[in-house]
């Protein structure tokens, strides 16, 4: 197990290096820091001196890969690649455009993001699995048929519609909760109720349909036929056999998703004014703050890889058939 984990860790590092190289290519090779400076300063008052000053302030005035003027090892450390990309491995993200520490911002904003993403995820999961189980239990009946149609219809609605109409109905027409904003402590519940509701509603169509297919696939397996042949009642077949076996893919899927919850939900957060990582990312995209976008890309891939490793581990824990080689 240890050697397996060690191998995964090395693999993860290689992937992170590739991610870093890719984003470095995108941000510094396709476009030069001069382009970035021109964009940030606005095209009107751009003089070569202003560009030089901006690059110096942000630390983009060094060579990209190799600095022949520096002594010794600094030939490689005093370069943009080292300072902007390699340092990400140490979670040293540097400062955003307003000069605030990105790491500090991320730590501050992870809380609100999780306060929104975790309830949406858990409530959504519970509802989706329940509905899917009901549809699988009454498969090929009127309930199931219409359930699938409703799911497809719900899936066909843009997520923006859920947010915009939800906000209009609940906050404006009925004036039940605040339209947007956030505060700490229990007060946050008032602000989060609507985004959570909207988030759950938006995911119910695709989620239910996904788990229904999963249950139906499980029900087509041989052990289910055996259970029926033994004369077990349908409820026992469903709950004691199918549900327990279907829990394996459900649980491992959940484990893969959990780390990425940290990233927050992009649109919902910015729409409802939740000061989380999602709205931070949107703001960075809109103000074209490349260092924040790069940090979030890195953070996202770290969390994704953590999810992958956790999935592997959880497989061995819940499914005795799977062993590490």
């Amino acid at each position: 197990m240890t050697s397996y984990l060690l191998r995964r860790l090395v693999y993860a590092l290689v992937i992170l290096l590739a991610v870093n190289l890719l984003t470095f290519m995108l941000f510094f090779v396709v476009n030069t820091p001069d382009d970035m400076a021109r964009m940030q300063l606005g095209s009107k008052r751009v003089t070569p001196e202003a560009i030089e000053r901006w690059k110096q302030e942000k630390g983009y005035d060094k060579p990209r890969w190799h600095n022949p003027e520096a002594p010794g090892i600094e030939q490689f450390t005093r370069t943009i690649f080292f300072e902007k990309s390699v340092r990400l491995f140490l979670f040293e993200f540097g400062n955003d455009i307003d000069g605030r520490s990105i790491r500090g911002e991320i730590l501050d904003r992870a809380g609100p993001s999780l306060a929104l993403a975790v309830p949406v995820f858990l409530v959504g999961l519970a509802l989706n699995v329940t509905f899917a189980l009901a549809m699988a239990l009454f498969r090929a009946s009127v309930l199931d048929l219409w359930g699938v149609v409703v799911c497809i219809a719900l899936m066909s609605i843009s997520s923006l519609f859920y947010i915009i109409s939800g906000q209009y109905l609940v906050s404006k027409a009925f004036a039940l909760v605040p339209i947007s904003g956030f505060s700490g402590g229990w007060d946050a519940l008032r602000f989060l109720a609507l985004p959570i509701l909207v988030g759950v509603a938006a995911g119910i169509g695709s989620g239910t349909r996904f788990y229904r297919t999963l249950f139906l696939e499980e029900m087509g397996r041989d052990y289910v036929r055996t259970a029926r042949a033994k004369g077990l009642p349908e409820s026992a077949v469903m709950f004691r056999h199918v549900l327990r076996n279907a829990l394996i893919p459900i649980l491992t899927g959940v484990v893969a998703v959990i780390p990425t919850l940290f990233m927050g939900s992009l649109i919902a957060e910015s729409f409802f004014g939740v000061p989380g990582l999602g709205s931070y990312t949107i703001d960075a995209i809109q103000s074209q703050d490349f260092s924040v976008v790069r940090s979030m890309v890195y953070l996202g891939s770290v969390l994704y890889i953590v999810g992958l490793v956790l999935t592997d581990i959880s497989y061995t824990l819940v499914d005795p058939r799977v062993r590490f080689e």
């Binding site: 984003t23 396709v30 990312t281 995209i285 979030m296």
Partner: peptide, 29 residues
Amino acid sequence: QFVYTTLNSIPSVLLIAAAVLLMQVFIDG
């Protein structure tokens, strides 16, 4: 497998956003 794990690991919205921003810089220039 390495290529697609790498691509998958980057949140797709961010990758698209980054690429489109760069495209914008190119078009402006």
